[in-house]
Design a protein around this nucleic acid. Structure first.
Lengths: 128, 128, 128, 128
DNA sequence: GTGGTCTAGACCACG
DNA sequence: GTGGTCTAGACCACC
């Protein structure tokens, strides 16, 4: 047997993901300046180095750029937000499919199960 | 602001989930005897107390029962496996929907996104 | 005017470059295990975190892979060494051309200057 | 083992090199007066002592001379510019050859590599 | 003030 | 033992 207790994602990844989410939801827009490393560290109650790593990772992924002595900015490339959304969506779906496969569900069952769940929600209100 | 970086689920929950998976996939069947706490602890390289908690949790959820002096058994109630599958499925779907909502996707987009992904997979083989 | 006193490359980059050199010169071969982070740190008189960063960077560039609990290994992909050599060669040439341009040399002068220098060396021995 | 991670060149050397470049490119000509130590220090945002060292170094190398109460001047000796260019060129070439040797390249490969690179550049425009 | 690098020392999961 | 992450605190170059 295999004992693989996947630790939660590293904090610096979680932070990057949070920011990605806010970009995809357009709460943060291309060209916007992110809080400074130190400020963000205080806001999140985390060590500045951890934020630094998040920012570096986001830059490596081409979502953000840093301007020396000025700060970290969301890049203005128009297509970026869409690409980011695609990437994150794929990640989520992948995780979902993997989990469902582990439970022995077929592809059809995944879709019908999801549809059933969403239709329940409709009856309780909040249509999206 | 205060950030909560979800620690990984407690190990005892992860272990229970693994066992649930195996029950749902029918690798472990109703009536089967689970390994002893001590043996399982060794297999997984974990403290026996942790396994004990997993077993207790599974018993609380009505999936297994312990018989004094004999061990821990998967209960034979016919509907159990199905219910368990439902419960776990719902958990996974919930997580999926929550993540997709965080990205700003509508319900329709969730389904179409999932379908698109699964159809891609078809072309590459491995039909489930 | 512009005051831009380029700091030396970060230590973790210098270390990665050193290792790349040794791979290109085939002193380290595909499949070889690198010293552990801690050991390398002691050897070089550097903080383990710095080595960690070097290893991470090398992995990101696809030159090295880490196996959990086992160590860091040069990847075995046959073409890797050649690609790495190309990459590093280009970097050096780029630096050279840039410096020569800053001195006002034309492309032809760069080549003839280099040839002249190398021929001098020939007369002093060490033919390569 | 002991590792020496070459710090960047001293700032005063970098400044001298910059001035040498400008002389070689004839942006500064023999006989020209250099800015005063104090003025140059302000322009470059550097301590005047650092500039002083740069000027002293350049004087030691016979490129400039200081005239008491008048300032620092580029010497008028006709051959100086050419010699300076030679010196700096040699330094750059030396650095290039050393780096290429570290990668295991032969002299022929150095030249052919450089030629290949420069010909690529031709196709993209900017002929020099 | 900004981001970038480095050290020191710690804890974790994995094999 | 391995690599991976995190904190704490420091120094640097750039604006």
């Amino acid at each position: 047997m295999k004992a693989d207790f996947e630790a939660s994602k590293p904090i610096y990844v979680q932070i990057a993901d949070q920011i990605f989410q806010r970009i995809v939801r357009e709460e943060i827009k291309p060209g916007d300046k992110l809080p400074s490393v130190r400020e963000m560290a205080i806001q999140l109650g985390v060590n500045p180095n951890t934020i630094q790593r998040s920012y570096t990772e986001m830059e490596r992924m081409g979502v953000v750029e840093t301007r020396r002595g000025q700060g970290t900015f969301v890049i203005e490339k128009e297509s970026m937000v869409e690409e980011l959304q695609q990437t994150m969506q794929k990640e989520i779906i992948l995780q979902f499919v993997k989990s469902m496969e582990e439970l022995g569900f077929s592809k059809k069952e995944m879709i019908s199960g999801l549809e059933a769940f969403l239709n329940e929600g409709d009856q309780n209100g909040d249509p999206v």
